[in-house]
Measured scan of single mutants.
Amino acid sequence: MAAGGDHGSPDSYRSPLASRYASPEMCFVFSDRYKFRTWRQLWLWLAEAEQTLGLPITDEQIQEMKSNLENIDFKMAAEEEKRLRHDVMAHVHTFGHCCPKAAGIIHLGATSCYVGDNTDLIILRNALDLLLPKLARVISRLADFAKERASLPTLGFTHFQPAQLTTVGKRCCLWIQDLCMDLQNLKRVRDDLRFRGVKGTTGTQASFLQLFEGDDHKVEQLDKMVTEKAGFKRAFIITGQTYTRKVDIEVLSVLASLGASVHKICTDIRLLANLKEMEEPFEKQQIGSSAMPYKRNPMRSERCCSLARHLMTLVMDPLQTASVQWFERTLDDSANRRICLAEAFLTADTILNTLQNISEGLVVYPKVIERRIRQELPFMATENIIMAMVKAGGSRQDCHEKIRVLSQQAASVVKQEGGDNDLIERIQVDAYFSPIHSQLDHLLDPSSFTGRASQQVQRFLEEEVYPLLKPYESVMKVKAELCL
C-alpha cells in the first residue's frame, strides 16, 4: 500500500493539533497551500530580480507567473513527485505547466533550498508574528487579574506546605514575570531571523556568478533584492546548502521555554482548584465526569500541561538535527523538520489560546482563602504575639514557653481530632496574655502579614508589564474561544 493518505478522510490519521486544537490561522501558515504558494512567490521574486539585473526574462513571463501564483494543481504535483521522487522539481514542473512561456526560467540558477529553506524562514517569521500578540493578550488578562487582587491576602506555599502570606495578585505576578520573559525572547528570536537568500547549491553562489558572467556586484544585488522582497532586513552571508540548523534550535528553545512557563502556571491553577481557592472557567453544560456528576475538573489547565510537556520535548529534535548536518548538509534534517517545526508552533498556539481562555474567566473564592488563612495564621502570628507581650512588660522566655504549650495543644486538636485551630481562643482565655487581649485582632490582621506584596504588584505592572504590552494595544480586544 502506498504511503500517505487522504487526510480529510475519517479513515486516515490526522494530527489532533490540526484537527482538534490549533487555530485556523496557525494551521494555514503550515498548510501545503501556504507552503507551495510561497515557493511560487519566491520563484517570481527571483525572476523579477534577475530581470532587473539584466537576464533575458520578459515582462510577459513575469506576468504569467504572477497570474498563476494561486493556480496550484495539487493532484498534478503529487503525481509528479511520485514520478520524480523530488518535491521541488515536482512543483517546478507543475508551475511550468500553467506558465508555459515562463517554464524555462522558473528556478533559474537556484537549488531546492532556495524555495525550501527560504519558505521555512518566512513561515517561522509569520508563525512567530501570530504567537506574539496571543502571548501579549494572556499577559494582559493576567495583569488585569493581578491588579484587581493585588491586596487580597492568601496563604503562600513553599514545598506545598503553608508559608508566609502573600497576595493573590502577587502570586499571579510570578506567572506574568515568566511570560514577559517569554514574550521578550519570542520577539528577540523573531527579529534575529535572517533570510537564507540566493546562495546556490553549497552556499557559494557559483551558479549565479556564472549567470551574471562573473559580476560579483550583481550577485550581491540579486541576494539583497530577493531578501528585501521577502520582507527581511538581512540575509546570511555564510550558508551551506541550507541555512544553519542552529536557527531551528533557537526558535524551538524559546517555544519550549514558553511551554515550561505555561505548565507551571496551569499546575498552580490545578492545585488551587483542589484547594477550592480558584477555578478555571466551567461552562453551564460542561460535564466533569461521566460517573461523578459533582466533579469540576480543571480540564483546560490539564490540557495545557499535557501539550506543554510535548512542546518542551520537541527542542531535542533540532538539537540532534543540527549535530548531524555533515559538511554542507545531509538530508537527516528533512523529514524531522517537516514534523517538529509545525508541531512546535501548533502546540504553542494551542496552549496560548487555551491559557487566554482560562485567564479571561478565572474565578476566585475569597471566603475559602480566608478560612485557610484562619487555619494557619495563628501559628504564624506567634512571633508577633511574643513581641507584643514583651512590649507590655512580659518575659520573652516565659511567653515563648506559654505559646509553645498552647500551640501544641491547638495542633493536637487540628491533627488528632480534625478540629479547627483554636490557638487564639486559648490565648484569649489565658490570664497571662490579658495585657494584649485587646491587640489580638490587630495582630491577626492578614494584611499585616503580606509585606509589600501589593506595592510590588503595582510597581511591576507599571514599570515592566504595561510598557512591554504597549506595541500590542491594537490587538488586545480579541477574545479566545474554545470549541473543545
Rank of each mutant, 00 (worst) to 15 (best):
N353D: 13
E228W: 15
C305A: 09
R234S: 03
N336V: 04
T202Q: 02
I57R: 07
T204F: 08
F95H: 11
K147T: 04
R37E: 07
D73Q: 03
E80L: 10
L135V: 12
A49I: 10
Y432D: 15
V115K: 08
E277I: 00
E64V: 10
F157W: 01
L131G: 05
E148L: 02
Q439C: 15
Q397F: 09
S207F: 14
I358W: 02
G394R: 00
F30M: 03
L84I: 08
I238Y: 11
E360R: 01
L222Y: 04
K402I: 15
R196W: 00
L84F: 05
E213M: 13
I424W: 11
A3H: 14
V251S: 05
A18T: 14
A90C: 11
K295N: 13
T154C: 06
L179V: 03
E80V: 12
L443E: 02
F160H: 10
E383G: 12
R83K: 02
F379G: 11
C305M: 11
L42E: 02
V254N: 15
H263T: 10
L209I: 11
D248C: 14
P24S: 15
E463L: 13
C172A: 02
R452M: 04
L406M: 06
K233N: 12
V29R: 10
S290E: 08
L46P: 02
L165M: 00
E228Q: 14
H7Q: 13
A431Y: 01
W39D: 04
A103T: 07
L346M: 15
S434M: 15
L482I: 14
F74L: 13
N274I: 03
A410V: 08
K101G: 04
Q161K: 00
L174K: 01
A411F: 03
Q397S: 14
Q63F: 15
H263P: 12
F379R: 11
L482E: 03
R459T: 09
A78R: 09
L42D: 15
Q241M: 03
L46R: 06
T119C: 07
L331M: 05
G214K: 06
L275G: 07
K276S: 07
P471N: 08
A110E: 02
S412D: 14
T450P: 14
G104K: 02
Q428Y: 07
S112Q: 03
S448K: 15
I424S: 13
P446C: 01
G96M: 11
L362E: 07
Y365V: 12
